[in-house]
């Protein structure tokens, strides 16, 4: 029951009351975390929320660069969502990209060929969806920094790939949700890559440790920045929101600073 209730994250993303059209339709969401505070749980929550029975037309195409399906299946099962069943229903497509990290074929040496065929796979998957679901696909990438590794360090290939995913958001109304780590982009060259991604982004979710240091009951804070608020008519007026969170075994608690001791 608890997870059905409206939480602060859903509210900040505008997922609250309206599910049709899907509020994240055509938008790009970036979850940014750091070593001290992992943002994976946001991805899990969004995955669960996207596949929930409230929005039966949604489909998820999951590009896993960091963990295999069994890992996500275990976590999502605890959250009350059966990924294997969803996959059989044709609502969840899992692309195991762990192998892309060490491509065997010669033409994929530079990583570029791999991304082109990956994009083709995504496009064909969306094309093959039933008519009702075509405009409700969500592409999720679980670790953008590992994409760069897959591209053998060429951030340009990653940006090309992201650009093509972005064209899917505007042409077919897909949404794109990615996770990235902030603290590995410190030098100028690498910073430019991250900034370039940020210019694509409509919603930025930042997971950080508390500014005041460690606390037993608070695991960190989330800041949701809705940059893309100008592009969507009648979107929520929450342009920016900040709240604390506590990750529990089968749910996450969100609360405003100061409302919990």
């Amino acid at each position: 029951m608890e997870n059905r209730a409206l939480n602060l994250l859903d509210e900040a993303l505008g997922l609250g009351y309206q599910t049709d059209p899907w509020p994240l339709r055509g938008r790009v969401v970036l979850i940014e975390d750091c070593v001290e505070t992992s943002g994976c749980f946001v991805l899990h929550q969004l995955l669960k929320r996207t596949l929930s029975s409230q929005s039966p037309n949604n489909t998820v195409i999951f590009l896993a660069f960091s963990h295999p399906l069994s890992h996500y299946d275990r976590i999502l099962r605890k959250l009350g969502c059966n990924l294997v069943a969803q996959r059989e229903n044709g609502r969840f497509f899992f692309f195991d990209m762990l192998k892309l990290l060490c491509p065997d074929e010669k033409e994929e040496r530079n990583g570029k060929g791999g991304f082109i065929s990956l994009y083709w796979k995504i496009q064909n998957t969306i094309r093959a969806l039933p008519e009702n679901n075509k405009n409700h696909a969500t592409i999720m990438i679980d670790d953008m920094s590992l994409m760069e590794v897959a591209a053998h360090g060429s951030s340009d290939h990653v940006l090309d790939f992201m650009h093509y995913c972005h064209t899917l958001t505007s042409e077919l109304g897909c949404s794109l949700i990615t996770l990235n780590h902030e603290d590995i982009y410190t030098s100028m060259e690498r910073l430019a890559f991250m900034l370039q991604i940020k210019y694509l982004v409509d919603v930025l979710i930042k997971a950080e440790p508390l500014a005041t240091g460690l606390a037993a009951d608070v695991h960190g804070q989330l800041t949701v920045l809705n940059w893309g608020f100008c592009n969507v008519k009648g979107s929520s007026n929450n342009k920016i929101s900040n709240f604390h969170f506590k990750v529990k075994e089968n749910s996450v608690e969100y609360f405003y600073p100061g409302t919990r001791t």
């Binding site: 082109i116 083709w120 496009q123 094309r127 090309d160 064209t167 505007s170 042409e171």
Partner: peptide, 24 residues
């Protein structure tokens, strides 16, 4: 220069998997 800057979609079309671009 947005829809297909590097010709990926064009290549895919060339391989016989044409995509309907109804939103264009």
């Amino acid at each position: 220069c947005y829809s297909d800057p590097l010709g990926w979609k064009y290549q895919l079309m060339g391989s016989g998997n044409c995509m309907d671009v109804s939103h264009e």
